[in-house]
């Protein structure tokens, strides 16, 4: 059968998992992003950075002071956050995260997706190149954060 996807090798998933484990100690929280929705309902996302690049966002539950699972941003009416305090919480949470020992492959992006969990919830996805050797950042998010800095 004709194989149009010669770049795919299932064994590379192990490499991808390993590289995310190696990157984990270097992860740190970026500036919290307040997302505004209709009817003044907001939610807080915290970009997780690797060097100068954002990898993914972590949804934050400000009432419980803990992350919310991926796919479930916590909507709130009013908000009061202290950036430094929040970053300190997230720094501690990042230390407690663990890399799920399984990967998903996204063919259109030619990339492995490695889930990162905290306790028993998945809070982040890290994208890795198809050969499992390089981390792929979220470029749009990286630029969004840069604008926040300016």
């Amino acid at each position: 059968m004709y194989n149009n996807y010669s770049f795919f090798n299932i064994n590379n998933s192990l490499k991808a998992i390993k590289i995310v484990s190696q990157a984990k100690p270097y992860l740190y929280p970026g500036p919290p992003l307040l997302r505004n929705g209709p009817l003044s309902i907001h939610h807080i996302d915290i970009p997780i950075m690797y060097h100068s690049y954002a990898l993914d966002i972590m949804h934050w539950d400000p009432e419980k002071q803990m992350p919310s699972p991926k796919g479930r941003p916590v909507k709130i009416k009013s908000i009061k956050i202290k950036k430094e305090e929040l970053q300190m919480y997230v720094n501690n949470i990042l230390k407690e995260t663990w890399i799920v020992n399984a990967a998903e492959f996204r063919e259109p992006e030619k990339a492995w997706i490695i889930p990162v969990a905290w306790k028993n919830i998945i809070i982040l996805h890290v994208k890795v190149s198809y050969d499992g050797t390089e981390i792929i950042p979220d470029y749009r998010l990286t630029e969004e954060i840069k604008r926040y800095v300016f």
């Binding site: 590289i19 190696q22 990157a23 270097y26 690797y50 060097h51 690049y53 190149s129 050797t133 390089e134 981390i135 792929i136 950042p137």
Partner: peptide, 9 residues
């Protein structure tokens, strides 16, 4: 420090 992994070049 252990060498950190690379970002996609």
């Amino acid at each position: 420090v252990v060498k950190p992994p690379r970002i996609l070049f």
